[in-house]
Simulated assay, not measured.
Amino acid sequence: MDTHRLLIFREVARTESIAAAARKLGWTQPAVSQHLRHLERQAGLPLVVRHSRGIRLTEAGATLLRHADAIATRLHAAEDDMAALADLSAGTVRLAAFPSASATLVPTAMTDLARRHRGLEIRLTQCEPPAAADLVTSGEADLAVLFSHDDRPPDHGPDLQVIPLTTDPVRLVVPTGHAAVTAAEPLTVLTTTPWIAGCPGCAAHLTRTCELAGFTPDIRHSTDDYVVIQNLVARNLGVALLPQLALDAYRHPDVQVRPLGTADRTHYLLCHREALQTPSVTQTTRSLQQAAAARQKPDGLSRSRCTTPG
């Protein structure tokens, strides 16, 4: 199949419109339609179904799109390789990361890269792990910083590489002076207290943690914003679980934090296997690993102070 036509088809599939793809490519709509018809003849199957609002992929089209995404990733990697051969500090890395990592680990890594490789450009997109993983899978991002509340990150498929980064303790966050601060088993005094949950994965982890302690949490509020969560806690509107990384990014003066000891989450990097062959992605990976290592003390806890009973 013609690679050029595959990339044109990829743009049609991503925009769900021949007209929108033509505008983005700077071509005429008839020219894009002609390339699409040629590709369908080469494939021997219809790839799209046209309707009044654009196009819909057939099963063959969806299958071919996965290959087109992989080709686009390889081509982007080839561009980076050529730039690196001409100038070892050149290249662009499209990085996706969840909010607290975007506020802590990523700026540290970006500062390090800017100091050592002035020509290397990092383009950050902030999003939660499922969306960030999708960006890598589709070829829209080269590297993603993700987290998992399980011991192991999810299986992302054979084409993707999972790189361990660090563990992040999850803390109990309560209003200043709350009884849970000094309780031997802090969760046991929170069975009837309102809770504030985060993203869907974090909310599921909160529920599992409380159920292990013998109760189902009364989740009153949901927000992905760790600043909002702490402001609600400070006003005695609920309690929450927050990862230490979020508390490193922002700490409200009117909340107290208790370690739980058994509720860590795992941070890891995700990229296409081929992407690790490009110097820009390799250097970015190393800088993120160094930033993660620098935030850890010998006992495995972050620099931020936690309140402990006694």
Rank of each mutant, 00 (worst) to 15 (best):
M1A: 13
M1D: 09
L7M: 13
E11D: 06
T15C: 00
S17A: 03
S17M: 02
A19E: 11
A20T: 03
K24T: 01
G26M: 01
T28K: 04
A31M: 13
A31G: 06
H35L: 00
H38W: 15
Q42C: 01
A43F: 15
P46Y: 06
L47V: 10
H51I: 10
H51M: 06
R53D: 13
R56Q: 04
T58Q: 11
A60I: 12
A62V: 02
R66N: 11
R74P: 03
L75H: 07
L75W: 05
E79V: 09
D80V: 01
M82E: 12
L85C: 02
A86S: 06
S89D: 15
S89Q: 14
R94F: 09
L95I: 02
A96W: 02
A97P: 05
A97E: 04
P99Q: 13
S100V: 02
A103K: 13
A103Q: 12
T104V: 12
V106H: 12
A109M: 01
A109S: 04
T111Y: 05
T111I: 04
T111D: 08
D112F: 03
A114T: 10
A114D: 15
R115C: 07
H117Q: 12
E121C: 09
R123M: 01
R123W: 02
L124T: 00
T125D: 12
P129N: 03
A131R: 15
A132K: 08
A133N: 14
L135C: 02
S138A: 15
S138W: 07
G139E: 07
D142P: 04
D142E: 08
L143Q: 10
V145Q: 14
S148Q: 05
D151V: 02
R152P: 00
P154E: 06
G157H: 07
L160R: 14
V162E: 03
L165I: 15
T167A: 10
V173G: 10
P175Q: 00
T176I: 04
A179W: 01
L187K: 11
T188I: 05
V189G: 04
L190Y: 11
T193F: 06
W195F: 04
C199A: 15
P200K: 05
C202Y: 01
A204D: 12
H205R: 04
T207D: 09
E211H: 06
L212P: 03
T216G: 02
D218T: 08
D218K: 04
D224I: 10
Y226L: 05
V227I: 02
V228R: 15
N231H: 14
V233N: 14
N236D: 12
L241A: 07
Q244E: 14
D248T: 13
Y250E: 14
V255C: 09
T262W: 05
T262V: 11
T262I: 12
A263M: 14
R265D: 02
R265V: 06
T266S: 05
Y268L: 14
L269D: 11
L269H: 09
L270R: 03
Q277M: 01
T278C: 08
T278K: 01
T282C: 13
A291N: 09
R295H: 14
K297T: 15
K297V: 11
P298N: 01
D299E: 03
G300M: 03
R305L: 10
P309E: 00
P309V: 00
